[in-house]
Amino acid sequence: MSLWFGVGAFVVVALVFLLVPLFRQKSALAGRQGDVRWPAVGVLGVLPALTVGLYIYLGAPAILKEQALTQAQSNYDVDGMVKALEDKLKATPNDPEGWYALGRAYIAFTRYADAEQALSKATTQAPQDARIIAQYAEAMALKQGSLDGRPLELVQQALEISYEETKALELAGLSAFQKENWAEALHYWRRLLKLLPKETEHHEAIAQAVQMAERKLDLRLGGTGMPMPAVPAEPRKAPH
């Protein structure tokens, strides 16, 4: 409906552009009413009708309805899910899996502070779950913008519990890469690569990261002995 309001507003503006100069001439042309009346009537009648007609012929007014439908559905789904989860956790707060899921949802919405809180609750309730601890570390790192300090400690803690925790391996490798410890980064990432299902986006991204680290390591060990142009180690966004 709002589209047709927009169309109406456009038509009115167009008519203003046409009719204002016409009627400003009117006073100067007292004797020649016909010169003014007929174009005015013609324009008022034809322009709105032709605009609507051409738009229905050329445009895609139906797309709005379809878009609205799909959008309402997807909005409803995601927002509704988060809302439902929040309500459920308010009623039964002792649910580490629930807090974990909520934390991940918050990260997806880039609500990092909320994510950190939710995951902090999850870790207190399940202090030995490496997956939850690693996720907590990521939320904290995203919030503070760096892996250094407490997030890295959490990553190490998660790896001590399980050396197969993918998120922890990824973050540990990333931290090493940022510190230009190429060998260490390779150690974590190569291990991670073996654990990830092949031909997924995640696998491909990590494989690329491994290649990059390998090249850096080659250059360092190859001992060409020349200064490399300083390429800042780009902190890769952790792929979700």
């Binding site: 169309v7 038509v11 167009a14 046409l18 174009p39 324009v43 322009l47 051409l54 895609a60 797309i63």
Partner: peptide, 24 residues
């Protein structure tokens, strides 16, 4: 919604151009 309004704007411009030609 917004792309559709762009489309409508061009349709109106088309008519204004024709009017501009004939009236001029």
């Amino acid at each position: 919604m917004i792309p559709e309004l762009g489309h409508v704007a061009l349709i109106i411009a088309l008519q204004l151009a024709l009017l501009q030609g004939i009236l001029g």
